[in-house]
Design a protein around this nucleic acid. Structure first.
Lengths: 196, 196
DNA sequence: ACCTGAACACCGTTCAAGT
DNA sequence: ACCTGAACACCGTTCAAGT
């Protein structure tokens, strides 16, 4: 006799994300997840293969949310303004979901790695903006430079690595401004005057 | 009746580092460490408070090694060449010790966090070089821009995040060159000609 | 079909008892 | 002093038995 489902993959992923954010990856246990969705731990294995598969589902969820956030962040049409908006949106996302963001770029075992196409979707707005700024030939290198900087910046911020004083917001502003300038194929008038 | 010590903190840390690099943080268990150093797990608690304290000792060891590596990397006296040398040395260190490097910037629980003074020692060569290039007023922001970029770049490289094709070495070269140029207080002659 | 208790292998950690 | 076996609480995972 069939029994009605008492939970769902969506509920499990949602519970997992909230536990992850509250207690970190170590706190994300199958037992905690089961307790939150209201089943016994063995029942989770009807929906997800194992804990790493659950982590993969969570990371995928986070990556999709980030991709959507970035897609809606670059809207002005001016590549310089768009690049700054992308960096600001990315940083805000990371600070709002520190554990989830950490997982996005953590060294995870193969079964927890997110699909490459999703990776591409999140990268697309940056790649497009970088191409507009640096020209098609340098687009990939320019995009990687921006992404590496932004990723490293918020990663260090979240890891508490900026411990030598100074204003972190100021360093962020300085960074995005200099990097934008450096990957631009042609200097703007302001660049020349401020460099003089 | 006193018993001769059968292991040492140094041996435990060394074993821990080698297990970490071979099997990742999840594989770094007190049981594996005990087996490698040749004692039973409870004996480890005579030398380290708990597993996170051991992680802290390991991270401290790695950070000290990185600091020494960076200190000996910037030697030409030319800040542009030194900055590139620092970036190259940092990347080589990270690629040679991927798990250890990952730990260096991971979101670790408080008891595993490394001492701030060691942080400062590792940052010093970069801060000095950035100051020579960007001037004293922008030194901190410039150093943070370089460090964020380098850290993000190798972090993404190690996490397998560069999956859209293109040459990763080329992106690294492009990045360090553009960032160096962008934080320099005064343009060099080559900058002007290549920007023209 | 889905859920569960029981079970197994593993882990971190404590502690009394050994030398 | 240091080391150990035994023990406890916890974890991931499997599986036969329930509905």
């Amino acid at each position: 006799m069939p029994t009605p489902a008492r939970t769902s993959v969506d509920a499990i992923v949602a519970a997992g994300r909230s536990i992850l954010e509250a207690e970190g990856l170590d706190g994300l246990t199958m037992q905690r997840v089961a307790a939150v969705v209201g089943v016994r731990p063995p029942s989770l294995y009807k929906r997800v293969r194992d804990r790493w598969a659950l982590v993969r589902l969570i990371v995928t969820d986070v990556a999709a949310e980030l991709a959507t956030t970035l897609e809606t962040a670059a809207t002005t049409g001016d590549p310089r303004a768009d690049l700054r908006a992308l960096a600001v949106a990315y940083r805000a996302f990371a600070l709002a979901h520190p554990e989830a963001h950490g997982l996005l770029f953590a060294r995870l075992p193969e079964p927890a790695r997110v699909d490459a196409t999703l990776n591409a979707r999140a990268a697309e707005p940056i790649l497009r903006t970088a191409a507009a700024l640096a020209g098609p030939d340098d687009a990939m290198e320019a995009a990687r430079t921006v992404v590496a900087w932004a990723n490293g910046f918020v990663g260090m911020e979240l890891a508490g690595a900026f411990r030598l004083g100074g204003d972190v917001d100021e360093a962020f502003d300085y960074g995005i401004e200099r990097i934008t300038r450096s990957i631009a194929a042609v200097e703007s008038a302001e660049d020349r005057s401020s460099l003089g």
